[in-house]
Structure formats: structure tokens, C-alpha cells
């Protein structure tokens, strides 16, 4: 792809690519915007930028990730995602075939999730102004009647449920980016979680206080954020946290704590204790929640700490990181 391609040919080439990949009635109209009917009730809207490197990784690429990420941000409100927009910033010289592949997996991810990418934009920028390809997606969704998930609803004694193993995405990306050869290939968990969420909401109802996708900063960042917002602390059990053996071995070698590693197809739910068993069973019955686990509980803590319980009742503080995982040992 070349820069400055306000030219007709290039514009047509690109729009042709997206039209065929995303193929839907809204795009087909060719407007700069798309109109759609609004459902009665509460809607959610979200936006996110994707700058992942490498663009292709085991288990997905930037395109599928851009769909999953935005769908999940909508789903974390308990909402059903409806429409997405997508904006592409492409570095001059980017391979058309790669773009095509990315667009196709985006379309595929959207179809699988039952959402439509109904508007978009592309810009090709000079070499060096972007790193291959950046994608920005926004999305809207509708929240079922009466559902209002929020951190303030969390109470002492609530259970912390996680939908599956931790660290798969972050380690997959890192191994691909740095060409690290691990014994077993580690595949990103990138996936759309709204269907899992819908079933959890049916099972748990009001008992579900809130959900969060532990992406950047991993479960540690997500729980610290919730702790801060809810004014509570969390205490999780080390041995209850599911981590794939391959990921655990990789983390051990790399000296990374899987709690801090990114996930793209996992959610953490804070659930009232009386609803926890039903929600957990529902999660485990779903293909995206088969490794789901109850990993701990909300506790009263004026410092809003997240702590990792050791097997004998002690605990270590799992704090926010201001940057990388830096040793604090002297």
C-alpha cells in the first residue's frame, strides 16, 4: 500500500476489501455513517485502539483481537453487542495480502459474535508514522432490562470467579514477538465472551455484581481496579488460579507472574456468594468457561489491597504495577 492514496483506485481497492470481508447491508449503502434502530432501554458504547505487535500470533491476529476486545468491553456490562465501527491506520508499504487476511478474520470474528461492522475508515500514513497497522474499533450494545453491573455493588464475602486459565494471550504474544521457543506452543485465548456473559446473567441475575476482562496488566490490574472502585479488598487463593502448565512453565522461566500477564478471552466476575455456585456451573458448561474457577473473595480492607493467600492463611500483596514487573528484592 502506498501513502497519499486519495486516488480512486486505491480507495476502491481498500473499500472492496473491507466490503467483502465484513459484507453487510449497512456498509453496502456506502455512506459515511450508518443508521440503525435503537432498542428500548440502556445501551453501552465503548472504543479501543489495537496496536499489538506482532500483528499475527498463535490464536489470532490484530483483526480478530480488535473485534474480540471491543465485543468483550461491551459484554462486561452484561450487554449484547450489536454494531461495531473500525478505523485502520496503515503504514505505507503494508502488504495488501496481510491486510486482506486481517480484514477477513475480523469479518469472521464479527460474524461469529453476531455483530456487524457497520462503518469504518482507513488512512495510509507515511512509513514510520505507524507500526504496520493500527486498528481502532468502537461498539454499541444493549443491556438487558434491569441489569446494572457496577463495582459499587460488590460486597464483602462476594466470590471472585475467573472464566479460565490466565496468561495465555500475553505469553503467546511475547513468544511470537521475541521468537521464544517454548516446549509447547502457547496460543492466545482471544475470543468473544458475550455469549458466556449472557448465560451467566441468566444463571446469576442480580447476583452478578460486575464483570471485567483482565486484559493489560492481567488479573492483578483488573482486581486492583475493582478494589479501588468498590472500596473493598480481594483475597485470592494461589492454588485455585487456573494456569495452563505450558504457560506456567514459560512464566517461571521468564520470571513473569501470570497474574500480571494479559488475557483476551477471559473475564473475572464478582458474584454474590449465594449465586456463585450456579454461575460457576454455567460457566463451566460453556466452551469458553470450561476451566472456570472460584478463586477467592472480596474482603474488607481500607487499603483496597488485592492479596494472594498462601496455603496457611498468610498473604502477599498483589499490587498495581506502575510499569514492568521489576524485582523489589535487595
Amino acid at each position: 500500500l502506498s501513502h497519499g492514496s486519495g486516488g480512486r483506485a486505491m480507495a476502491q481497492l481498500i473499500s472492496g476489501l473491507f466490503h467483502s470481508a465484513f459484507g453487510n447491508e449497512w456498509l453496502a449503502r456506502g455512506n459515511d455513517q450508518s443508521a440503525f434502530d435503537v432498542a428500548a432501554g440502556r445501551m453501552v458504547m465503548t472504543t479501543d485502539g489495537y496496536v499489538v505487535s506482532p500483528l499475527f500470533f498463535p490464536g489470532g491476529n490484530i483483526g480478530s483481537l480488535a473485534v474480540h476486545g471491543t465485543v468483550n468491553d461491551i459484554a462486561m456490562a452484561g450487554a449484547r453487542p450489536l454494531y461495531l465501527s473500525a478505523s485502520f491506520i496503515i503504514e505505507e508499504g503494508f502488504r495488501f495480502s496481510d491486510l486482506k487476511m486481517i480484514a477477513e478474520s475480523m469479518g469472521e470474528a464479527a460474524r461469529a459474535a453476531g455483530v456487524h461492522i457497520i462503518t469504518g475508515d482507513t488512512k495510509v500514513v507515511e512509513r514510520g508514522k505507524a507500526d504496520g497497522l493500527f486498528i481502532s474499533t468502537a461498539g454499541v450494545g444493549v443491556v438487558p432490562d434491569g441489569l446494572d453491573l457496577s463495582a459499587e455493588k460488590a460486597r464483602v464475602g462476594d466470590r471472585v470467579l475467573i472464566s479460565g486459565t490466565l496468561g495465555d494471550h500475553g505469553v503467546a504474544i511475547m513468544s511470537k514477538r521475541q521468537n521464544l521457543a517454548f516446549e509447547t506452543e502457547i496460543v492466545s485465548d482471544s475470543a468473544s465472551l458475550h455469549d458466556l456473559v449472557a448465560k451467566m446473567v441468566t444463571a446469576g441475575g442480580e447476583g452478578i455484581r460486575l464483570m471485567r476482562d483482565p486484559t493489560r496488566g492481567g488479573l492483578a490490574a483488573a482486581l486492583n481496579e475493582i478494589a479501588q472502585q468498590s472500596g473493598l479488598g480481594f483475597r485470592v487463593q494461589e492454588e485455585a488460579i487456573p494456569v495452563k502448565p505450558g504457560v506456567a512453565a514459560a512464566c517461571e522461566l521468564l520470571g513473569l507472574d501470570p497474574l500480571y500477564v494479559a488475557n483476551e478471552g477471559k473475564l473475572v466476575a464478582i458474584v454474590a456468594p449465594e449465586a456463585a455456585a450456579a454461575v460457576l456451573a454455567t460457566m463451566r458448561a460453556h466452551p469458553l468457561g470450561c476451566d472456570a474457577a472460584d478463586i477467592g473473595e472480596a474482603v474488607a480492607d481500607d487499603h483496597h489491597f488485592v492479596q494472594m493467600a498462601t496455603s496457611f492463611g498468610g498473604g502477599r500483596i498483589v499490587d498495581w504495577l506502575s510499569g514492568e514487573q521489576l524485582p523489589r528484592i535487595c
Binding site: G255, L256, Q325, L326, R328
Partner: peptide, 9 residues
């Protein structure tokens, strides 16, 4: 370099 950060300790 401390290979693996805290693991090197």
C-alpha cells in the same frame, strides 16, 4: 542481565 528478573535473585 538478570535473566528472568526476580527469578535471577
Amino acid at each position: 542481565p538478570m535473566l528472568g528478573g526476580v527469578q535471577a535473585v
